[in-house]
Design a protein around this nucleic acid. Structure first.
Length: 625
RNA sequence: GCACCCGUAGCUCAGUUGGAUAGAGCGUUGGCCUCCGAAGCCAAAGGUCACAGGUUCAAGUCCCGUCGGGUGCACCA
């Protein structure tokens, strides 16, 4: 039999076709101007309404044709060519509703592997990009987890994905830390994690710099370190920090394709090329007098309303570049406008995939050349990111402008307080993960099952970190998150554990069903009913969820879908008939073999859907819990 | 001051880019394991979708205004 992916897509096409014939008839009758076909939206019907899917398109037609929507819906229902899996169409008032053919529909979904075709488009996701001078803390968590989930989702949706992590190795913060180590004569003991060790020196230095005299005395020496960094003389120092930071990311299950070193971008000549391009823009100029005399500036007033001063400096009067102009050059490079960077293998990641880094002594490689660029940066950077995006348009690349995406997210506070490394209101990410695992272990121990697990370390890791990731992903990007230990690591309710538990339960059923000799190949789908249909309809929503997630660049759609699917399965599993007896059992020898096997097929498909949903969020399904 | 984001149940949040009687979790109350995993399920209670106008056959969703919360407006990095 023919198995097609999305019934809704087919319905949409069928309705569109019916409308086209209906419209052409209307036109020939009246000889009037062609009427634009309305957009057809197929939606799920409310629970208490007849049908499984429906569309309100008759309203729009009614307006265009100046006819009654009720009669139009009825007419469409009659003329519509039903796609496979749909048994009939019916007008419910002005709505046009569809009833699925239960057996055919379920089989088509259950047997569909849901392979999403390759889009032949490349998207670069840049995330993490933490200053290489201290350990990652809880404030970075949202960035890393959001970026990683988005990368996985793009990959799932058929895009080629390149994950970049930007290393600001010439910045003030890196200089501070390296200087601090020298200044205090500190020697790394080789035991403490290197980034933590360096971070402590950084904090200590900032305590001392509060004294103006000390600051004045040390400032020239720090500047000298910056110059050393710019010349690339301290690269091995920075590499040590980056490697320590990456250990944290790996522990979270996050990997990258490429580290982009700022010093390499600076040394590439991209900046000059980018500025030459912007020279041609009417928005850019070299003021000959006034506040910005001698600078190269951009007038942002046309696209960034509300700034007190719309003039943005790209090149300072001493000729050096500002951060924004470096970002612009880098964005041009990401879209493949510039060539010339070289790359080296930097390290091997836990998955055994190489991590590359830009390097002046490297070799050419097929990085960059993206069709879409997603920069994961918090919402406080909206202005500079808008300038970066707009620069693509100014430079004459409207398509690249459209595909420059600032994945902006609101900040994370810690138990109601703003995170501040200097005030000590923060927690290192390594510690957060450790705490997450130990809470998961406590929970398992409290249930008395910790000792029964074959691999307790793995399970506590999967449960603890799953919860942590989920807490960063379940809200919309624009929402502020207050990180609270109890809520983030809670193991009840609206949480990754809920989904993991449903998956574990399904897995257990599948295992026992196989032990009982059941096999989904023997499924008789005609024996299934509305209970299975509800579950399968939920499974079928996955492609649309992915689509919405890519559209909004917000993984929270996937997180909520996971909860809904798990909830749907739990409801199915617990369903009871009027006599309070479970009527959805898979393994029940009093039932026909074909029914048991069909239910097994549905549960197997549901399990795969859950695994996949959690997978794109970077959350694993424990084999036992 | 100006701009952007947010305001939905007591709390934390969804709401398929304008459709049918606004949904979850936590908390509260009551029920469900001799039955494939109770980290679960079912039920009850809880709403002027901040407020006031407008557009539309149809507004939590779009537009205008007001109020409240957050963030941003450097030749810093």
């Amino acid at each position: 039999m023919e198995v097609k992916t999305d019934v809704k897509v087919q319905l949409k096409e069928a309705v569109e076709k019916a409308i086209t014939t209906l419209l052409s008839k209307a036109e020939t009758l009246e000889g009037a101007d062609p009427i634009a076909a309305p957009v057809v939206v197929i939606q799920d019907t409310p629970n208490d309404k007849p049908g499984d899917y429906g569309t309100p398109v008759a309203f729009l037609l009614a307006k265009a044709l100046k006819k009654n929507p009720v009669t139009l819906a009825a007419e469409l229902a009659k003329t519509l060519e039903l796609p496979f899996g749909i048994s009939r169409a019916e007008a419910v008032g002005p709505y046009l509703n569809f009833f699925v053919d239960v057996a055919g529909y379920i089989e088509s979904i259950v047997r569909d592997p849901l392979n999403i075709p390759s889009k032949n488009l490349k998207v670069i996701v840049e995330h993490t990009s933490v200053n290489p001078n201290k350990e990652l803390h809880v404030g970075h968590l949202r960035n890393v987890v959001l970026g990683d989930a988005m990368a996985r989702i793009y990959r799932e949706a058929g895009y080629t994905v390149e994950v970049q992590n930007y290393i600001d190795d010439t910045g003030r913060q890196a200089a501070d830390s390296i200087f601090a180590a020298r200044h205090y004569g500190a020697v790394w003991d080789g035991i403490q994690k290197y980034d933590h060790w360096l971070g402590e020196l950084y904090v200590r230095l900032h305590q001392d710099l509060k004294d103006p005299e000390i600051k004045a005395a040390l400032e020239p020496q720090i500047r000298e370190v910056i110059h050393q960094l710019e010349r690339g003389e301290l690269r091995s120092e920075i590499e040590k920090v980056v490697k320590a930071q990456l250990e944290t990311c790996y522990a979270l299950g996050v990997e990258y394709d490429l580290l982009v070193w700022e010093s390499d971008i600076v040394g590439s000549g991209f900046l000059d090329k980018a500025m030459k391009i912007l020279e041609k823009s009417e928005y850019c100029s070299h003021p000959l007098e006034g506040k910005y005399k001698g600078c190269f500036v951009m007038d942002t007033s046309h696209f960034l309303p509300g700034l007190e001063d719309p003039i943005l400096v790209l090149l300072r009067s001493d000729g050096t570049a500002t951060y924004t102009s470096k970002d612009i050059a880098q964005q041009f490079w990401k879209f493949g406008l510039f060539e010339g960077l070289d790359y080296l293998e930097f390290t091997v990641q836990p998955s055994e995939k190489y991590l590359f880094a830009t390097h002046s002594n490297g070799k050419p490689h097929a990085f960059a050349h993206a069709n879409r660029v997603v920069n994961v940066i918090d919402s406080r950077q909206e202005h500079p990111q808008k300038v970066v995006k707009t620069s693509m348009a100014i430079a004459g690349y409207p398509n690249e402008y459209e595909n420059s995406i600032h994945l902006s997210y609101n900040t994370v506070s810690l138990e109601g307080q703003a995170i501040s490394g200097r005030k000590g209101i923060t927690v290192p990410m390594d510690q957060v993960m450790q705490e997450a695992k130990s809470r998961a272990a406590d929970e398992l121990a409290g249930r008395g099952i910790l000792d029964d697990l074959k691999n307790p370390d793995k399970v506590t890791f999967q449960v603890g970190l799953g919860g942590l990731r989920f807490s960063m992903l379940k809200s919309e990007r624009t929402r502020e998150i207050d990180f609270q230990w109890d809520a983030a690591l809670s193991l009840v309710g609206d949480n990754a554990v809920y989904i993991q538990y449903a998956a574990a339960r399904a897995n257990s059923i599948i295992r026992k069903a196989k032990e009982a000799g059941l096999n989904s190949d023997r499924a008789d789908y005609t024996l299934l009913g509305n209970l299975e249909l509800e579950l399968v309809k939920e499974i079928a929503r996955f492609p649309m969820i992915l689509e919405n997630t890519v559209r909004d660049n917000s993984p929270h759609h996937v997180a909520h879908y996971g909860l809904e699917l798990a909830n749907c399965f739990n409801g199915y599993y617990n369903h009871k008939d009027q006599n309070q007896k479970t009527d959805t059992k898979v393994i029940d020898s009093s039932l026909p073999d074909g029914l048991q096997c069909a239910r097994l097929a549905v549960v197997e498909r549901m399990f795969k859907a859950l695994e996949r949903t959690l997978g794109v969020l970077g959350i694993e399904v424990p084999a036992e819990m």
